[in-house]
Structure formats: structure tokens, C-alpha cells
């Protein structure tokens, strides 16, 4: 059986909120290392990979692998019933047909309990190869979100070019063109505002801004976002969570003619 207790419902609320517009029905794969989720959007252009490590929960108990097939719209409806600070406990039997969610309010004596019917989702699982990326950019997640939103006003695609001078986000469209160039930057007082660019070789790739703007819904989960690029491979956009948990998005590049 599964029993996973989260100190704050807020974490799961924000994770589900960040991915519910990208994927609809997902398997939450529970095992002794934690709760994982991998799903692609309908066009198989973007993939979300979530890992909530068992250390994120206390207590965490999962004595055999359980796949919880859940519709994210249903999960969103139930998570709306939890206050951000509520203690959230997920429970499921082995081979379950429902997942049980309990919300306990910290101060007042209120306990809410919901069951969500599970679905049989036979989702193809993709192998994501370990990659030594040519360029890794760590930057404020809010800044990346602003760049994507700003450039999406001009074009549906953005080229991301990393050289030793820095990283340049550029686009051009019907009304004109625009670009944002960042260089490594250290803010001593506020390290969360740092921009760090690690480059082993120059990289230039083009991506759909619609998807990047969608990924940026996760910005509230982490002050920093990590972009990993190599030529001819999908972009990795990673929001690190506590206890080595993470929310990762992969996006296939646009291929020039």
C-alpha cells in the first residue's frame, strides 16, 4: 500500500497546476524511492518528468510499485479543496481503484477526505538518455518566464544561442524582431538572481514559444530555472524542488530547412 504525507498541500497543488494544461491523464508511479510521473503532450513534442522523492514526504510508505492513473482535471478539482498549508496525505491500496486524499488543517481541527477514481492508462514510457549538455544556464525563473512571454508577442519561435559572450534569446515575426542577451551575473545579496552560464561548446537551437510559456507555469515552484541545451537534442527546462525532487520539461527543437 501507499501512504505519503506532505507537510504542505501547496507543493502538489503547484506541481499539478503547472502541468495540467500540458498533459491530461497521467500515471503517478509510486515506489519506494518516491512518486514519479512521465507524460507527453498530445503532439509528442513536449514531455514532463516529475519526481517527488520519498524524502519530500514524512512519513512515506510504499511497499510495492503502484501506478495511480489519474485525470489531472479531476485531481485539480479535489486539490482545490485543500488549503495551501493543509497537511496532505495520499493513500492507496495495492492494485487500487481509488486514490484517497486527506487534508488536515494545521491550526483548526478540520479534516477533509476525498477519493478519486483511478483510470487504466497504458502510457508509453520513453527512455531519456543521460546527456552531457553543451550549455547549461541557471537563471531566475521569473526572468525566463518574462523573456518567453515578451518574445511570444513577436513570434511563435525563439532561437536560443549560447556562446562564450552569453546566451541570446532572439525571434522575428510579422511586426519585427527582438532579442534578449544575458551574461553570467552574480548578485551577492540575492543569489537567487544569479545568471550562471556553463558552456562547453557553442549551441544554437530554435523552439516553440507556446510550449516554453506553458512550462513557465512552474515558475512559482522554484526561484531558479535550469536550461540545458545541446545541438540536435531536446531542450531540458528544470525546476528543482526540495529534497532533490524536480519538475522537468523536455521540448523537441524546431528543425530548420
Amino acid at each position: 500500500m501507499l501512504e505519503a504525507r506532505l507537510e504542505q498541500a501547496n507543493l502538489l497543488k503547484k506541481v499539478v497546476d503547472a502541468i495540467k494544461d500540458l498533459v491530461q491523464d497521467c500515471n503517478f508511479d509510486c515506489n519506494d524511492s518516491g512518486i514519479a510521473l512521465q507524460a507527453m503532450d498530445n503532439s509528442h513534442v513536449a514531455l514532463v518528468s516529475m519526481m517527488l522523492k520519498s524524502e519530500s514526504f514524512s512519513p512515506f510508505r510504499c511497499d510495492r510499485n503502484i501506478a495511480l492513473g489519474i485525470n489531472l482535471t479531476s485531481l485539480t478539482k479535489v486539490l482545490r479543496c485543500a488549503a495551501n498549508e493543509d497537511i496532505l496525505t495520499l493513500k492507496a491500496e495495492d492494485a487500487p481503484d481509488v486514490v484517497n486524499l486527506v487534508f488536515e488543517s494545521a491550526e483548526s481541527d478540520r479534516l477533509s477526505e476525498y477519493d478519486i477514481k483511478l483510470m487504466d492508462i497504458d502510457q508509453e514510457h520513453l527512455g531519456i538518455p543521460e546527456t552531457e549538455y553543451a550549455a547549461t544556464i541557471s537563471m531566475p525563473s521569473a526572468e525566463f518566464q518574462k523573456i518567453c512571454r515578451d518574445l511570444m508577442a513577436l513570434s511563435e519561435s525563439v532561437s536560443i544561442e549560447c556562446t562564450k559572450e552569453g546566451v541570446k534569446f532572439a525571434c522575428s515575426g510579422d511586426i519585427g524582431s527582438g532579442s534578449v542577451t544575458l551574461r553570467s551575473h552574480t548578485n551577492v545579496e540575492k543569489p537567487q538572481l544569479n545568471v550562471e552560464i556553463d558552456l562547453s561548446e557553442p549551441v544554437a537551437l530554435t523552439f516553440s514559444l507556446k510550449y516554453l510559456v506553458n512550462f513557465c507555469k512552474a515558475s512559482g515552484l522554484s526561484e531558479q530555472v535550469r536550461l540545458c541545451l545541446s545541438n540536435e537534442v531536446p531542450l531540458l527546462v528544470e525546476y528543482a524542488l526540495s529534497n532533490n525532487s524536480y519538475l522537468r520539461f523536455y521540448l523537441a527543437p524546431k528543425i530548420g530547412d
Partner: peptide, 14 residues
């Protein structure tokens, strides 16, 4: 113009 790649080009089914 550029056309959108697909993840199956890069990630194999497990």
C-alpha cells in the same frame, strides 16, 4: 521556415 521536431526522434520507447 522551420518545422517542429518530435520527441520520438530523440527518445526511444522503453
Amino acid at each position: 521556415s522551420t518545422n517542429q521536431g518530435n520527441l520520438h526522434t530523440f527518445f526511444s520507447k522503453q
